[in-house]
């Protein structure tokens, strides 16, 4: 198991290095950064001065390693727009996004997995059809629209929860539901499909032949095997929620990292964009690594891989 974890960790580091190089190259893919910083009214001399000040005149690889070395110490340079260290900006915003992401994925898992199990236990029953309806609706409904509906009902009409801001846990209820509901259908369908497949397998018949109770068959014998693909999916969705919750963050005025990314892209604030891409990618890498470890714990056959 330890060997497996070390191997996966090594792989994750290689992926991280590749991603860091790509996000660094963004600076050059979007034109001459010195011109961008100097602004429209600058003359050639100013541009040259800025180029030397920021070190853009050095070879690209030197710049990359310089940037990487700084990034390793959480120094991502200054934001062009805010004129503040990028690391402080991100640290400031990441808390909101992390809280929202964790709450949303927990919500999705807690609702979707039991629903998937029940649907698989009674395929084509009323509850299975209801679960299917919920998941189709979740997949088809745009989250901005669902968010507005929830706000108009629960905040404006009923006045139960605040509609915007991020000062208390109650501010996170609606965004969690919207973001979690978006992730739920895939988890539910995958759990259902996995359970249906596992329930028809020979070792489930063996468990029943041993005299195991139905609950024991479902949870100890079936779910443990059926949940494996769900773990991988949830990891990807978790990464996606941290990086891609821009819509939900802007509707509920949660000033998180997703919102910062959107702001920085529209302002051409390249150091911030670079750093955010790196941070979001690191989340993906960490969650995938965690999913691999959980799966190896669940399924001993994966430990050899």
């Amino acid at each position: 198991m330890l060997g497996f974890i070390l191997k996966r960790l090594g792989l994750a580091l290689l992926v991280a290095l590749t991603v860091s190089f790509i996000s660094f190259s963004l600076l050059y893919l979007s034109g001459d950064p010195a011109t961008a910083i100097a602004g429209e009214s600058a003359n050639a001399q100013d541009v040259q001065a800025i180029r030397e000040l920021y070190g853009f005149d050095r070879p690209m690889l030197v710049q990359y390693f310089d940037w990487l070395w700084n990034a390793l110490r959480f120094d991502f340079g200054q934001s062009y727009y805010f004129k503040l260290p990028v690391a402080d900006l991100i640290a400031d915003r990441l808390g909101v996004t992390m809280r929202l992401g964790l709450a949303a994925i927990s919500f999705a898992l807690i609702v979707a997995i039991p629903l998937g199990v029940v649907a698989a236990m009674r395929p084509n029953s009323l509850i299975d059809k209801l679960a299917l309806f919920l998941s189709v609706a979740g997949q088809a409904m745009p989250s901005f629209w669902f968010a507005l509906v929830l706000i108009s009902v629960f905040s404006i009409k009923l006045g139960l929860v605040p509609a915007s801001g991020s000062t208390s846990w109650r501010h996170f209820i609606l965004p969690t539901v919207v973001l979690g509901y978006y992730a739920m259908p895939a988890i539910m369908r995958l759990t259902r499909a996995g359970m249906l497949e596992v329930l028809s397998s020979d070792y489930i018949r063996t468990a029943r032949a041993k005299g195991a109770s139905e609950g024991r068959v479902m949870f100890r014998h079936a779910l443990r095997n059926a949940i494996i693909p769900v773990v991988s999916l949830a990891a990807v969705q978790m990464g996606f929620m941290l990086g891609g919750s821009i819509v939900v963050e802007s509707i509920f005025a949660l000033h998180g990292a997703g919102f910062l990314a959107w702001e920085s892209i529209s302002r051409n604030d390249l150091p911030t964009v670079q750093a955010l891409i790196l941070v979001f990618s690191m989340f993906y890498i960490v969650f995938t690594l965690l999913a691999d470890i959980v799966n190896a714990w669940l399924d001993p056959r994966m430990r050899a891989a």
Binding site: T206, A209, K210
Partner: peptide, 19 residues
């Protein structure tokens, strides 16, 4: 089942829980 009457199956490769 499993106590006073027990059964073994045709497919030993898939009859044990892999986990």
């Amino acid at each position: 089942r499993g106590n006073r009457m027990a059964m073994i199956f045709q497919e030993p490769m898939t009859s044990l829980n892999p986990a």
